[in-house]
């Protein structure tokens, strides 16, 4: 993990877009180490428990959400269950049930749903993993709520005037999953082939599912 190349002059220095905080002991990173060590000293947690939690986090990816969506596109009964009781639907697929109540909202020709948390960063982490930086950014949180069509446009997503745009502000105990419209020309696709068309951004509602 901690390979340093500071002395290897043959490797050209690149300028990362964002400082690599794993290499620099910033004040806040020192605080993370200090707090973690104190909690281990006090036997509140163990190094192993922290490691396992990080691993569990790495295993939660948008592929989980993609499987759920592909099943909903393929199986009308499952789609119905997902829209009525999102957590039960996840459980039925052998996925984590999730700590929060899951509300699935379906995009159709008439309705386009998009999700935000204006107050912080609420997100269906058990299905999509950790939220991307832009989802937590001031620009997204401030503007998608009051000018959603413009923000969707910034993602290259144009919703026609014949559809209603429905923004969901995730303020409390619900978490939201957008069920994107099934792309045309996918009749007869297997679930795993369909799942490849489901992007994270489509499940947040800022884009459409991929065309095959």
């Amino acid at each position: 993990m901690s390979e340093h190349h500071h002395h290897d002059e043959s490797v050209p220095h690149r300028h990362p877009l964002r400082a690599d905080q794993d290499d620099t002991l910033t004040y806040w990173r020192a605080m993370e180490i200090a707090v973690r060590e104190l909690l281990i000293d006090k036997e509140i947690t163990t190094a192993d428990e922290v490691r396992r939690e990080v691993e569990a986090m790495d295993n939660r990816t948008p592929a989980h959400g993609g499987r759920v969506i592909a099943r909903a596109w393929s199986d009308p009964d499952f789609r119905k269950l997902l829209l009525e009781d999102g957590n039960a639907a996840c459980e039925a697929m052998g996925l984590e049930r999730g700590l929060y109540k899951l509300v699935a909202v379906e995009n159709t020709d008439k309705v386009h749903n998009v999700v935000v948390c204006t107050l912080c960063s609420c997100y269906p982490r058990f299905l999509l993993g950790l939220p991307p930086d832009w989802y937590k950014s001031r620009n997204y949180r401030s503007r998608v709520i009051s000018d959603p069509r413009a923000v969707l446009g910034e993602f290259g997503t144009v919703v026609g005037d014949d559809a209603v745009v429905r923004v969901h502000d995730s303020t409390a105990d619900m978490r939201y999953l957008v069920v994107p419209k099934r792309p045309s020309g996918t009749e007869g696709f297997s679930e795993s082939k369909l799942a490849e068309l489901v992007t994270r951004d489509a499940m947040i509602g800022v884009s459409f599912a991929r065309q095959p």
Partner: peptide
């Protein structure tokens, strides 16, 4: 001065 369709909505959880 909302720039969108008149029937666009926002859904919010409120106690």
């Amino acid at each position: 001065g909302y720039r969108g369709k008149g029937d666009d909505t926002v859904d919010i959880e409120i106690y």
